[in-house]
Design a protein around this nucleic acid. Structure first.
Length: 253
DNA sequence: CCCTGATTCGC
DNA sequence: GCGAATCAGG
C-alpha cells in the first residue's frame, strides 16, 4: 500500500482528531501502526502526548536553579478521545455548587430519611494568624455563557447545571423472598469454579440464572456450553464480516 | 502482559 | 520515503 493523497488526507484528519495510530492504521488498512506513526511524523503532524516523552533533555546543565519561567505548555490536543471519530469532550462533572440549588423536582415523599449533612471543612481552627477569611464579595450575576457542542446543542453553563436527580429515599431492606420461579435455579451467588457459568436468560429478567451443570474441567462452562463458547477460528476470508456499525464504523476492506 | 507514541536505521 | 524493530511510559 502506498500513501496516496487520499490516504494521507485520512491520516491527517484522524490524527488531528485524536485517533490512535492503531485505529488509523486499522481504518486505512494495509499499513501498520508504526507506518502510521512514521508517516505522521514525516508529514510534520504535531506530536501528541506520548507516554514516553515528558522528559526534557535540557535538565542536565548546571543544575538549573534559575527561575524557570513557567513553561505554560500550550493547550495540548485533547488527550485520546474515547469515541473513535468525534472526540466529544466530556461534560464536566457537576462542580461543587454553592448552597442555593433549585428545588428538587420531586415532592418530598417521606422524611424518615434524615438528611445527611455534608460536613464542610470549616477551618475555624486557629492554624495561623493569617487573616485569610476574606469578606464575601457579592458580585452581580455574570452573563450566561454557553458553549455549543457538536450537533449544535447548547451546553449548560457551569452556573446553571441541573441539580442531580434526587435519589430515591432509602427504604427499609427486607430479605428477598425466594420466588418460586427461582427455586432450584443457579443464581449469581451460587457460582463457583465447579459449575457452569453459562447464563440462561438475561440479567434483569426475573428468572435469570446460570446453567449450573458440572463444568468441563479447565473451562468455565459445561461440556455442552463449551461447544457454544468455543468455536474453531475460521480463516479470515471465510469469516462473515461484522455488520456495519450504526454510526458508520471503519470502512470494510 | 496489554496499550500508547517516538525514534532508529536498513532498505 | 518507508516501515519494522525497538524503546519506554502507563
Amino acid at each position: 500500500m502506498s500513501w496516496t493523497d487520499e490516504r494521507i488526507d485520512t491520516l491527517r484528519k484522524r490524527w488531528e482528531a485524536g485517533q490512535t495510530a492503531s485505529q488509523i492504521a486499522e481504518e486505512l488498512g494495509g499499513v501498520s501502526r508504526n507506518a502510521v506513526i512514521g508517516k505522521a511524523h514525516r508529514l510534520g503532524l504535531q506530536s501528541r502526548p506520548s507516554p514516553v516523552k515528558p522528559n526534557e533533555p535540557a535538565a542536565a546543565t548546571a543544575a538549573a536553579p534559575a527561575p524557570t519561567p513557567a513553561p505554560a505548555p500550550a493547550p495540548v490536543a485533547p488527550p485520546k478521545a474515547a469515541a473513535p471519530v468525534a472526540p466529544a469532550p466530556k461534560p464536566a462533572p457537576p462542580a461543587p455548587r454553592p448552597a442555593v440549588v433549585a428545588a428538587p423536582p420531586v415532592a418530598e415523599i417521606e422524611d424518615e430519611a434524615e438528611e445527611q449533612e455534608v460536613a464542610v471543612e470549616a477551618d475555624s481552627d486557629d492554624d495561623t494568624d493569617e487573616a485569610d477569611a476574606a469578606p464575601v464579595v457579592v458580585r452581580p450575576a455574570p452573563p450566561i455563557l454557553r458553549s455549543v457542542g457538536p450537533g449544535g446543542f447548547l451546553r449548560q453553563a457551569p452556573g446553571e447545571q441541573q441539580a442531580p436527580i434526587t435519589p430515591a429515599p432509602p427504604r427499609r431492606l427486607v430479605p428477598a423472598k425466594p420466588s418460586a420461579e427461582m427455586a432450584g435455579k443457579t443464581t449469581l451467588l451460587d457460582l463457583n469454579d465447579k459449575i457452569c457459568k453459562w447464563p440462561i436468560g438475561h440479567p434483569g429478567e426475573p428468572d435469570f440464572h446460570f446453567c449450573g451443570e458440572k463444568v468441563n474441567p479447565g473451562f468455565p462452562y459445561c461440556v455442552g456450553h463449551c461447544g457454544h463458547a468455543y468455536q474453531a477460528q475460521l480463516p479470515r476470508r471465510d469469516r462473515r464480516p461484522a455488520p456495519p456499525l450504526p454510526f458508520g464504523g471503519p470502512r470494510a476492506r
